[in-house]
Design a protein around this nucleic acid. Structure first.
Length: 287
DNA sequence: CGTTTTTGACCTGCGC
DNA sequence: GCGCAGGTCAAAAACG
């Protein structure tokens, strides 16, 4: 599957028929890269996502939502300029302490964690990618195997948030799944971390997922192009797909957040948690 | 019987 | 210091 037949031209994707999140990922990859390159002025990537095999599972048509305008007043990569008063201890900062204790779960991790914190060492954030997909299924198939380790009620939302961990040993990738309280048909899936193993299943589109999550090809993954302490939020839009994403992206730095809205090329508000931006996003997309 | 899910308790950080 | 909310643990239950 290393045919480099991928169309790099898509400044606009279109509608695709997805059967899984992997599909969604796959068709979004090129778009995302292009977008990011323009938005954040990434240096030319030596090996983008070309290995993605042709979308034999869905055809791409015109996607009005992905009209990336390169001269648009995109988000400033606020990484260094503004140190937004974003609190370094913001919520998204809390869940990173599994970087040190790779096991994540288990035994004395609690106490160790405590002590670690006492040291005052700031751990780097794991890369995060969030997808907003329209689906009736909460836990979307993405090719990896996950074990649920928790569920919590979300404030101001009737829908709980579920916490999953990759079942592969030594892989501490996590994901959170929650349903938007504003549009219950939308599922928000947030991946955190990078898989250090191949995708167990052979679903279509897994290549894309691997790229996105950054473990494929010796570090050539999508997220690998970012500094480790960064977070990435990608929210893609795929009308008519099983999973219809919602079209906005935010790139969160250590000192600030750059956001990009695929729909109108306008920055979206800063946010720490995905849910925080939902209102603004929905207000823009809802007709 | 091994694996996964459920779920209440616990921990931590933050705001007041 | 206290309460709240998010995140995690871990024992028990459920499942295949």
């Amino acid at each position: 599957m290393d045919d480099h037949h991928v169309e790099q031209k898509n400044t606009h994707l279109e509608e695709v028929s997805f059967t899984s999140l992997s599909d969604c990922l796959q068709s979004s990859l090129v778009m995302d890269y292009n977008s990011l390159e323009k938005v954040f002025k990434f240096p030319p990537y030596s090996s983008p996502f070309q290995p993605v095999s042709p979308c034999n599972m869905g055809h791409i048509v015109n996607n009005p939502y992905l009209n990336i305008n390169s001269n648009s007043p995109v988000v400033s990569s606020s990484s260094n300029e503004a140190e937004l008063k974003e609190n370094p201890n913001d919520k998204s900062d809390r869940m990173e302490d599994n970087e040190g204790d790779q096991h994540g779960v288990g035994e004395s991790s609690k106490q160790l964690t405590k002590q670690d914190k006492k040291k005052g060492e700031k751990k780097e954030r794991e890369a995060r990618v969030a997808f907003m997909t329209k689906s009736e299924i909460d836990h979307l198939e993405d090719g990896y195997r996950w074990r649920k380790y928790g569920q919590k009620a979300v404030k101001n939302s009737p829908y709980p948030r579920s916490y999953y961990r990759c079942t592969t040993q030594k892989c501490n990738v996590k994901k959170r799944v929650e349903r938007s309280f504003q549009d219950p048909s939308i599922v928000i899936t947030t991946y955190e971390g990078k898989h250090n193993h191949p995708i167990p299943s052979t679903l279509r589109g897994t290549v894309a997922a691997e790229h996105l999550l950054g473990h494929r090809g010796g570090g050539g993954g999508f997220l690998h192009s970012f500094p480790r302490h960064h977070q990435e939020f990608l929210m893609m839009k795929h009308p008519l797909a099983n999973y219809q994403s919602v079209g906005s992206m935010s790139y969160e730095h250590g000192h600030g957040t750059s956001s990009y809205n695929f729909n109108n090329n306008q920055p979206v508000v800063d946010y720490g948690l995905l849910q925080d931006i939902l209102p603004s996003m929905f207000s823009k997309h809802e007709s």
